[in-house]
Design a protein around this nucleic acid. Structure first.
Lengths: 190, 190
DNA sequence: AAAATAATTTGATATAGATCACATATATTT
DNA sequence: AAATATATGTGATCTATATCAAATTATTTT
């Protein structure tokens, strides 16, 4: 998993062995089991997580106790409650795994430290966040202009890996439909 | 408007006069009139825009000729088609002003150059994008968990400035409802 | 200030998707 | 392998929002 993280950085910046080792020392490896929370609503958030294995999900629970999934995080992705992380406010989200996972965790202090010490690490994260920003814009547009069926098909096309791991009711929650409606989408005959 | 940009940077990083002048030299000032496009679907995109005055809107037109507004950009905000900008692909968006505007435009080459030359400028943009990312996450959650009325009220609360400038049909398009439905929301009596 | 254009409101009706209530699979745990 | 828990599917009905069609009301332009 050291290799996975290194390759991840090296998609954007070049690193010597010692540079990467230095970066890597700021991370902590962790295995989490099913139903183990990395973040719960109300928590103070200090860490960002890089997924090595498995699949995490971040979600909110609304006033009707319905869950809404903000993000799935597969290997090679970053996840946290960025709002809580950025301004030190209590988390509004839950973060746990779909089915157990392995992660590399870094504190925001360490991330900022690495960014300050190594210009190219700051560059890496600027580019990363920028791509993340574009991905969120795409998701907003698909919520605005597509119906449930089209959104499901777009998701299936873009992230086929999700369909191996993730129960359909969670996909429904990510897409913004009920599980009943999702179930009816792929039995279109009538 | 030089002042506005400087204050904008100095919310996150400190700059000497000469540093700021150097940065500022990479921008081009532009006035745009109503109905003048900064980006049209199919264009190659080379610039990012900082709004000085007025209000810009970025939007897509779907296959039924309906517009969906991705973003409003008020003074002190950045806007472009970031997907097209990042990977050199043709734009899928339109970008124009609600009612005339003044902007500072910077090419992506110049932005990258400034980021490479000045670590703190890279830091500035990392932080900026990070906040933008959080704002988009909030918007996704509000699309997933709120009905049209609540989304309208959240918007009204968060960006009261929009209601002075922007016709309600454009707000409807941003919120993901029709103008007819929006019109009925604030006449709730029945 | 008339004329033209753009924005908003209102009514009647249609529809995608939600909700509620079970039935049926499919996994997990004992 | 039972027993329990979890996930999925189906029917009947309800509801928020869309759609289509006009009528008003504002805002520009001549």
């Amino acid at each position: 998993m050291k290799k996975l993280l290194r390759e991840h950085f090296e998609k954007i910046i070049a690193l010597t062995d010692s540079e990467f080792d230095y970066i890597y020392d700021h991370f902590v490896f962790k295995k989490i089991i099913k139903h183990q929370f990395l973040i719960q609503q109300g928590d103070r958030v200090h860490n960002e997580y890089f997924v090595v294995k498995g699949c995490l999900k971040s979600y909110m629970i609304d006033s009707d106790d319905k869950a809404h999934i903000l993000q799935f995080a597969l290997p090679d992705w970053w996840v946290s409650d960025y709002q809580a992380l950025n301004n030190g406010s209590p988390s509004t989200l839950y973060l746990d795994s779909v089915d157990g996972a392995e992660i590399l965790s870094i504190t925001m202090e360490n991330k900022d430290k690495l960014c300050a010490e190594m210009h190219k690490v700051e560059h890496f994260f600027r580019k990363k966040t920028n791509w993340g920003y574009v991905a969120l814009q795409q998701r907003i547009l698909s919520l605005l202009n597509s119906n449930a069926k089209d959104r499901y098909e777009q998701l299936l096309k873009q992230y086929p890996a999700l369909f191996k791991t993730v129960p359909k009711q969670l996909l429904a929650s990510y897409l913004g439909v009920t599980r009943e409606t999702l179930s009816r989408l792929y039995t279109p005959a009538k």
